[in-house]
Design a protein around this nucleic acid. Structure first.
Length: 305
DNA sequence: CTCGGTTCCTGGAGGC
DNA sequence: TGCCTCCAGGAACCGA
Protein backbone atom coordinates (compact mmCIF):
# COMPACT_ATOMS: atom_id res chain seq x y z
CA UNK A 1 0.00 0.00 0.00
CA UNK A 2 0.84 3.40 -0.18
CA UNK A 3 3.04 4.16 2.78
CA UNK A 4 3.42 7.58 4.34
CA UNK A 5 5.24 9.26 1.42
CA UNK A 6 2.64 8.03 -1.04
CA UNK A 7 -0.26 9.20 1.12
CA UNK A 8 1.44 12.57 1.55
CA UNK A 9 1.81 12.77 -2.23
CA UNK A 10 -1.89 12.01 -2.61
CA UNK A 11 -2.73 14.71 -0.08
CA UNK A 12 -0.69 17.30 -1.93
CA UNK A 13 -2.30 16.29 -5.20
CA UNK A 14 -5.84 16.41 -3.91
CA UNK A 15 -5.59 19.58 -1.85
CA UNK A 16 -5.75 22.10 -4.73
CA UNK A 17 -8.80 20.36 -6.16
CA UNK A 18 -10.67 19.80 -2.92
CA UNK A 19 -9.94 22.68 -0.58
CA UNK A 20 -12.75 25.16 -0.50
CA UNK A 21 -15.07 23.00 -2.57
CA UNK A 22 -18.52 21.86 -1.50
CA UNK A 23 -19.39 18.17 -1.66
CA UNK A 24 -22.44 18.37 -3.91
CA UNK A 25 -22.88 14.63 -3.95
CA UNK A 26 -21.13 11.61 -2.51
CA UNK A 27 -21.71 8.60 -4.72
CA UNK A 28 -21.18 5.23 -3.04
CA UNK A 29 -21.09 2.50 -5.63
CA UNK A 30 -21.02 -0.20 -3.00
CA UNK A 31 -21.92 -0.18 0.70
CA UNK A 32 -18.51 -1.23 1.93
CA UNK A 33 -14.78 -1.16 1.31
CA UNK A 34 -12.82 -3.25 3.76
CA UNK A 35 -15.42 -2.26 6.35
CA UNK A 36 -18.95 -0.98 5.85
CA UNK A 37 -19.04 2.73 5.14
CA UNK A 38 -20.61 4.54 8.09
CA UNK A 39 -24.38 4.78 8.32
CA UNK A 40 -25.69 7.66 6.28
CA UNK A 41 -22.21 8.56 5.05
CA UNK A 42 -23.32 10.28 1.87
CA UNK A 43 -26.07 12.32 3.49
CA UNK A 44 -23.77 13.40 6.28
CA UNK A 45 -21.08 14.80 4.00
CA UNK A 46 -23.21 16.25 1.22
CA UNK A 47 -23.53 20.00 1.39
CA UNK A 48 -20.44 20.36 3.57
CA UNK A 49 -17.51 22.47 2.46
CA UNK A 50 -14.01 21.00 2.53
CA UNK A 51 -11.79 23.17 4.68
CA UNK A 52 -8.53 21.35 4.14
CA UNK A 53 -6.66 18.09 3.81
CA UNK A 54 -4.32 16.67 6.41
CA UNK A 55 -2.45 13.43 6.85
CA UNK A 56 -1.90 11.31 9.97
CA UNK A 57 0.22 8.17 9.53
CA UNK A 58 -1.16 6.58 6.35
CA UNK A 59 -4.56 8.20 6.76
CA UNK A 60 -5.89 11.05 4.70
CA UNK A 61 -8.00 13.47 6.78
CA UNK A 62 -10.54 15.62 4.95
CA UNK A 63 -11.76 18.39 7.25
CA UNK A 64 -15.34 19.51 6.70
CA UNK A 65 -17.05 22.77 7.52
CA UNK A 66 -19.24 21.32 10.25
CA UNK A 67 -16.28 20.07 12.28
CA UNK A 68 -16.49 16.50 11.03
CA UNK A 69 -13.70 14.86 9.06
CA UNK A 70 -13.58 12.10 6.49
CA UNK A 71 -10.81 9.62 7.31
CA UNK A 72 -9.55 7.57 4.40
CA UNK A 73 -7.01 4.75 4.39
CA UNK A 74 -5.84 3.47 1.01
CA UNK A 75 -5.04 -0.07 2.15
CA UNK A 76 -2.82 -1.90 -0.32
CA UNK A 77 -4.26 -0.77 -3.61
CA UNK A 78 -6.36 2.36 -3.06
CA UNK A 79 -5.89 5.52 -5.07
CA UNK A 80 -7.64 8.81 -5.68
CA UNK A 81 -7.82 10.64 -8.95
CA UNK A 82 -9.26 13.98 -9.95
CA UNK A 83 -11.42 14.38 -13.01
CA UNK A 84 -12.46 17.68 -14.47
CA UNK A 85 -15.08 16.74 -17.05
CA UNK A 86 -15.64 20.20 -18.41
CA UNK A 87 -12.03 21.24 -18.65
CA UNK A 88 -9.80 18.26 -19.16
CA UNK A 89 -7.95 18.24 -22.44
CA UNK A 90 -4.80 16.37 -21.53
CA UNK A 91 -5.87 12.75 -21.40
CA UNK A 92 -2.80 10.69 -20.68
CA UNK A 93 -1.14 8.31 -23.11
CA UNK A 94 -2.44 4.85 -22.40
CA UNK A 95 -5.54 6.09 -20.67
CA UNK A 96 -8.87 4.57 -21.45
CA UNK A 97 -10.51 7.74 -22.60
CA UNK A 98 -8.26 9.77 -24.86
CA UNK A 99 -10.91 12.04 -26.29
CA UNK A 100 -10.35 15.59 -25.09
CA UNK A 101 -13.00 16.73 -22.69
CA UNK A 102 -13.89 13.28 -21.44
CA UNK A 103 -12.86 11.47 -18.31
CA UNK A 104 -9.62 9.64 -18.27
CA UNK A 105 -8.56 6.62 -16.29
CA UNK A 106 -4.92 6.51 -15.25
CA UNK A 107 -2.81 3.59 -16.39
CA UNK A 108 -3.75 0.33 -14.80
CA UNK A 109 -7.04 1.53 -13.36
CA UNK A 110 -10.29 -0.30 -13.90
CA UNK A 111 -13.55 1.62 -13.53
CA UNK A 112 -15.12 -1.47 -11.98
CA UNK A 113 -13.11 -0.59 -8.89
CA UNK A 114 -14.22 3.03 -8.67
CA UNK A 115 -16.05 2.63 -5.38
CA UNK A 116 -16.61 6.17 -4.11
CA UNK A 117 -17.02 9.36 -6.15
CA UNK A 118 -17.11 12.80 -4.55
CA UNK A 119 -18.81 15.29 -6.82
CA UNK A 120 -17.41 18.67 -5.85
CA UNK A 121 -18.52 22.15 -6.73
CA UNK A 122 -16.51 25.31 -6.46
CA UNK A 123 -17.32 28.64 -8.07
CA UNK A 124 -19.84 27.00 -10.34
CA UNK A 125 -17.45 24.37 -11.59
CA UNK A 126 -17.93 20.67 -11.01
CA UNK A 127 -15.17 18.17 -10.58
CA UNK A 128 -15.00 14.63 -9.37
CA UNK A 129 -12.64 12.96 -6.95
CA UNK A 130 -12.74 9.22 -7.50
CA UNK A 131 -11.59 6.54 -5.06
CA UNK A 132 -10.46 3.37 -6.83
CA UNK A 133 -9.40 0.26 -4.90
CA UNK A 134 -9.18 -3.16 -6.62
CA UNK A 135 -8.29 -5.14 -3.53
CA UNK A 136 -10.64 -3.18 -1.32
CA UNK A 137 -8.33 -3.21 1.68
CA UNK A 138 -8.88 0.51 2.10
CA UNK A 139 -11.53 2.03 4.32
CA UNK A 140 -13.23 5.29 5.15
CA UNK A 141 -14.90 6.65 8.23
CA UNK A 142 -16.48 9.88 9.34
CA UNK A 143 -15.16 11.41 12.56
CA UNK A 144 -17.44 13.86 14.29
CA UNK A 145 -16.01 16.74 16.23
CA UNK A 146 -12.41 17.71 16.60
CA UNK A 147 -11.13 14.99 18.94
CA UNK A 148 -9.30 13.21 16.16
CA UNK A 149 -6.58 11.88 18.42
CA UNK A 150 -9.24 9.97 20.33
CA UNK A 151 -10.64 8.28 17.23
CA UNK A 152 -10.11 4.50 17.31
CA UNK A 153 -7.92 4.69 14.19
CA UNK A 154 -5.62 7.25 15.74
CA UNK A 155 -5.68 6.51 19.45
CA UNK A 156 -2.78 4.09 19.48
CA UNK A 157 -0.60 5.52 16.73
CA UNK A 158 3.04 6.19 17.49
CA UNK A 159 5.22 9.11 16.39
CA UNK A 160 5.30 10.43 12.84
CA UNK A 161 8.67 9.93 11.13
CA UNK A 162 8.51 13.47 9.78
CA UNK A 163 8.79 15.42 13.01
CA UNK A 164 10.94 15.86 16.07
CA UNK A 165 8.84 13.38 18.03
CA UNK A 166 10.73 10.53 16.43
CA UNK A 167 14.09 10.64 18.16
CA UNK A 168 16.74 8.24 19.40
CA UNK A 169 15.41 8.58 22.94
CA UNK A 170 11.85 7.82 21.82
CA UNK A 171 12.99 4.76 19.92
CA UNK A 172 15.07 3.58 22.87
CA UNK A 173 12.07 3.84 25.18
CA UNK A 174 9.89 1.90 22.78
CA UNK A 175 12.50 -0.73 21.84
CA UNK A 176 13.78 -1.45 25.34
CA UNK A 177 13.27 -5.07 26.35
CA UNK A 178 11.75 -6.10 23.03
CA UNK A 179 12.84 -9.45 21.65
CA UNK A 180 10.91 -8.90 18.44
CA UNK A 181 12.92 -8.48 15.20
CA UNK A 182 13.49 -4.79 14.58
CA UNK A 183 11.90 -5.20 11.15
CA UNK A 184 8.58 -6.11 12.78
CA UNK A 185 8.83 -3.37 15.40
CA UNK A 186 9.35 -0.71 12.74
CA UNK A 187 6.23 -1.90 10.92
CA UNK A 188 4.18 -1.55 14.11
CA UNK A 189 2.08 1.59 13.66
CA UNK A 190 1.86 1.95 17.45
CA UNK A 191 5.60 2.60 17.50
CA UNK A 192 6.12 4.62 14.32
CA UNK A 193 3.07 5.74 12.36
CA UNK A 194 3.43 5.59 8.62
CA UNK A 195 6.28 3.22 7.82
CA UNK A 196 5.59 0.20 5.63
CA UNK A 197 7.55 -2.64 4.14
CA UNK A 198 9.50 -0.62 1.58
CA UNK A 199 10.78 2.17 3.80
CA UNK A 200 11.52 -0.16 6.71
CA UNK A 201 13.76 -2.25 4.45
CA UNK A 202 15.44 0.87 3.10
CA UNK A 203 15.97 2.44 6.53
CA UNK A 204 17.52 -0.72 7.97
CA UNK A 205 19.90 -0.93 5.02
CA UNK A 206 20.93 2.70 5.41
CA UNK A 207 21.59 2.13 9.12
CA UNK A 208 23.49 -1.12 8.50
CA UNK A 209 21.23 -3.12 10.81
CA UNK A 210 20.23 -6.73 10.11
CA UNK A 211 16.43 -7.01 10.03
CA UNK A 212 16.37 -10.00 12.39
CA UNK A 213 18.17 -8.06 15.15
CA UNK A 214 16.10 -7.91 18.31
CA UNK A 215 14.79 -4.37 18.73
CA UNK A 216 15.90 -4.37 22.36
CA UNK A 217 19.49 -5.13 21.36
CA UNK A 218 19.79 -1.60 19.95
CA UNK A 219 19.21 -0.11 23.41
CA UNK A 220 22.02 0.20 25.97
CA UNK A 221 21.73 -1.34 29.40
CA UNK A 222 21.05 2.06 30.96
CA UNK A 223 18.16 2.63 28.55
CA UNK A 224 20.00 5.09 26.34
CA UNK A 225 19.99 4.62 22.57
CA UNK A 226 23.01 2.81 21.16
CA UNK A 227 24.96 4.28 18.27
CA UNK A 228 23.17 2.06 15.77
CA UNK A 229 19.79 3.20 17.03
CA UNK A 230 20.87 6.79 16.53
CA UNK A 231 21.83 5.87 12.97
CA UNK A 232 18.47 4.15 12.46
CA UNK A 233 16.59 7.23 13.63
CA UNK A 234 18.51 9.36 11.13
CA UNK A 235 17.97 6.83 8.35
CA UNK A 236 14.21 6.78 8.89
CA UNK A 237 13.94 10.57 8.83
CA UNK A 238 16.08 10.82 5.72
CA UNK A 239 14.49 8.07 3.65
CA UNK A 240 10.99 9.35 4.36
CA UNK A 241 11.94 12.94 3.56
CA UNK A 242 13.62 11.90 0.30
CA UNK A 243 10.66 9.75 -0.72
CA UNK A 244 8.18 12.58 -0.10
CA UNK A 245 10.40 14.88 -2.12
CA UNK A 246 10.34 12.35 -4.97
CA UNK A 247 6.56 12.09 -4.96
CA UNK A 248 6.60 8.62 -3.40
CA UNK A 249 7.28 5.29 -5.06
CA UNK A 250 5.18 4.03 -7.94
CA UNK A 251 4.80 0.26 -7.82
CA UNK A 252 1.82 -1.53 -9.27
CA UNK A 253 -1.11 0.46 -7.92
CA UNK A 254 0.25 3.70 -6.58
CA UNK A 255 -0.11 6.58 -8.92
CA UNK A 256 -0.36 10.28 -8.32
CA UNK A 257 -3.75 11.92 -8.41
CA UNK A 258 -2.98 13.46 -11.77
CA UNK A 259 -1.98 10.10 -13.22
CA UNK A 260 1.77 10.76 -13.16
CA UNK A 261 4.23 8.63 -11.26
CA UNK A 262 6.40 9.15 -8.23
CA UNK A 263 9.98 8.13 -8.86
CA UNK A 264 11.49 7.06 -5.54
CA UNK A 265 11.37 3.41 -6.64
CA UNK A 266 14.40 4.17 -8.81
CA UNK A 267 16.30 5.00 -5.65
CA UNK A 268 15.60 1.79 -3.75
CA UNK A 269 18.82 0.31 -2.40
CA UNK A 270 17.46 -3.12 -1.48
CA UNK A 271 13.66 -3.26 -1.83
CA UNK A 272 12.68 -5.60 -4.68
CA UNK A 273 16.35 -5.91 -5.66
CA UNK A 274 16.99 -9.53 -4.69
CA UNK A 275 20.12 -10.87 -6.38
CA UNK A 276 21.54 -7.46 -7.23
CA UNK A 277 24.84 -6.20 -5.87
CA UNK A 278 24.59 -4.24 -2.64
CA UNK A 279 24.92 -0.59 -3.64
CA UNK A 280 26.98 0.37 -0.59
CA UNK A 281 30.44 1.45 -1.76
CA UNK A 282 33.04 -1.30 -1.26
CA UNK A 283 30.45 -3.80 -0.03
CA UNK A 284 30.71 -7.15 -1.83
CA UNK A 285 27.32 -8.43 -0.71
CA UNK A 286 24.28 -9.42 -2.74
CA UNK A 287 20.77 -8.31 -1.81
CA UNK A 288 18.83 -11.19 -0.24
CA UNK A 289 15.17 -11.75 0.47
CA UNK A 290 13.78 -13.51 3.52
CA UNK A 291 10.28 -13.80 4.95
CA UNK A 292 9.50 -12.19 8.27
CA UNK A 293 5.99 -12.29 9.62
CA UNK A 294 4.76 -13.43 6.24
CA UNK A 295 6.23 -10.42 4.45
CA UNK A 296 9.31 -10.14 2.30
CA UNK A 297 12.34 -8.45 3.80
CA UNK A 298 15.14 -7.30 1.48
CA UNK A 299 18.57 -6.69 2.94
CA UNK A 300 22.31 -7.12 2.47
CA UNK A 301 23.65 -9.98 4.61
CA UNK A 302 27.19 -8.56 4.42
CA UNK A 303 26.86 -4.96 5.56
CA UNK A 304 23.71 -5.24 7.67
CA UNK A 305 24.80 -6.82 10.94
C1' DC B 1 0.90 -7.44 27.51
C1' DT B 2 3.62 -9.74 23.29
C1' DC B 3 4.18 -12.70 19.48
C1' DG B 4 3.29 -15.24 15.10
C1' DG B 5 0.07 -16.82 11.85
C1' DT B 6 -4.14 -16.03 9.21
C1' DT B 7 -7.37 -13.41 6.75
C1' DC B 8 -9.73 -10.05 3.79
C1' DC B 9 -9.59 -9.06 -1.98
C1' DT B 10 -8.11 -8.73 -6.89
C1' DG B 11 -4.70 -8.78 -10.37
C1' DG B 12 -0.10 -9.31 -12.33
C1' DA B 13 3.92 -12.20 -13.12
C1' DG B 14 6.01 -16.32 -14.09
C1' DG B 15 6.18 -21.51 -14.73
C1' DC B 16 4.60 -25.18 -17.55
C1' DT C 1 -3.09 -19.09 -25.76
C1' DG C 2 -4.50 -21.04 -20.93
C1' DC C 3 -4.18 -22.68 -16.30
C1' DC C 4 -1.94 -22.79 -12.06
C1' DT C 5 0.59 -20.97 -8.15
C1' DC C 6 2.68 -17.36 -5.81
C1' DC C 7 3.13 -12.77 -4.53
C1' DA C 8 1.83 -7.81 -3.53
C1' DG C 9 2.73 -1.12 -0.57
C1' DG C 10 -1.80 -3.05 5.27
C1' DA C 11 -3.53 -4.14 9.48
C1' DA C 12 -7.32 -6.34 12.20
C1' DC C 13 -8.01 -10.42 14.45
C1' DC C 14 -7.24 -14.75 16.92
C1' DG C 15 -5.04 -17.90 19.85
C1' DA C 16 -0.90 -19.26 22.42
Amino acid sequence: MPELPEVETVRRGLAPAMEGAVIARAELRRPDLRFPLPEGFAARVEGRRILGLKRRAKYLVIDLSDGAAILAHLGMSGSFRVEEPAVLTNALPGSSGDTPGLFYLPRGKDARHDHVVFHLEREGRILQVVYNDPRRFGFMDLAEGTALDAHPFFRSLGEEPTGNGLSPDYLAARFKGKGQPVKATLLDQRVIAGLGNIYVCEALWRAGIAPATAAGALVRGDGAPGARLVALNTAIHQVIAEAIEAGGSSLRDHIRTDGTLGYFQHRFSVYDREGEACPRPACTGTVARIAQGGRSTFFCPVCQT
